[in-house]
């Protein structure tokens, strides 16, 4: 069991004697957003090192789930445990990659300025980055294939490059758990492959990851586990277990057209992954 990158307190001796608890453990979680319930009674466990795709129609509560997992939204009921401990004990363990539209890309920052923010949490806020921090930032940029852009203004980047900057920042946080909200939406093929490749590497390093996506084919072919969400948990398991006509009809409702021989067509209002300019 390794907790090297984490600022979490040492485990109590009795707890340490047991097997490592699930990385993420949600028990009957409900979240309200703007006074209305966005998620109701969601329970699931993500074991150590699992990589999970989160799918569901627009407004299914995918972003809400992620925001609740990092403590951005309060729970109206239920508990979330990370490493068997409630939220608030885990500052650096969880990295969250929000949707790209959530920040102002015209800010006067370079690519490396943004990625180094991933290091801010783990040292005093007053100290500048150390040589070690710079090394980690450079490594994160290199893994995302954007080291040549390090000194570029973020406003000059394409959508896919911006997404890779965000992923690089999450890598610089050296997380145990990585949450990404629709990282593949509106990005070019190069960026998409770069992100997928890093996800494979992280999987080998036993980093737990949850990725929301509109691309059901991607979820079915590149992920071991899929979680289907529509305001409540519809299904959770391997793609073969999850992608059944029944589940998809329940999750996508009128958007799902079930054809003969188990073929399902799903109509989503947003085009899932358009190729952006690289």
């Amino acid at each position: 069991m390794t907790f090297t990158h984490c600022d979490q307190p040492a485990l109590d001796p009795p707890l340490a004697a047991f097997e490592e608890p699930a990385r993420l453990d949600l028990d009957r979680v409900s979240v309200a957003y703007g006074g209305r319930p966005a998620l109701t009674d969601v329970s699931f466990q993500v074991p150590h090192g699992e990589c999970v795709a989160v799918v569901g129609p627009n407004g299914a509560g995918k972003s809400t789930l992620f925001k609740a997992l990092v403590g951005l939204l309060p729970l109206s009921a239920g508990t979330i445990l990370i490493h068997g401990r409630p939220l608030g004990h885990h500052r650096d363990c969880v990295a969250y990659v929000p949707q790209r539209e959530d920040v102002d890309w015209s800010f006067p920052l370079t690519v490396s300025d943004v990625v180094v923010m991933g290091r801010y949490g783990r040292k005093g806020w007053l100290r500048g980055p150390t040589a070690h921090d710079r090394e980690i930032v450079h490594e994160a940029l290199r893994r995302m294939g954007i080291d040549a852009l390090a000194e570029r203004s973020i406003g000059e980047l394409s959508g896919g490059q911006q997404q890779r900057v965000f992923v690089a920042r999450a890598l610089a946080q050296e997380p145990h758990i990585l949450l990404m909200d629709e990282p593949f939406t509106g990005v070019d093929v190069t960026s998409r492959e770069a992100i997928l490749q890093v996800l494979d590497q992280l999987h080998q390093q036993q980093v737990t990851a949850m990725i929301s996506t509109h691309d059901l084919n991607l979820a079915a072919t590149r992920f071991e586990q899929v979680l289907v969400l529509n305001r409540r948990l519809i299904a959770y398991g391997s793609p073969a277990e999850v992608f059944t006509p029944d589940v998809l009809r329940t999750a996508f409702g009128g958007q799902a057209l079930v054809l003969r021989e188990g073929l399902v067509a799903i109509d989503q209002c947003c085009p899932p992954e358009q190729g952006g300019v690289h």
Partner: peptide, 22 residues
């Protein structure tokens, strides 16, 4: 000057700021 980094993160990316418990 002293709060340069916290102000920068809060201004650019409030979501990161709160995940870092600022």
């Amino acid at each position: 000057l002293i709060l340069y980094r916290p102000f920068l993160v809060v201004s650019f990316d409030p979501v990161l700021a709160s995940t870092l418990r600022l």
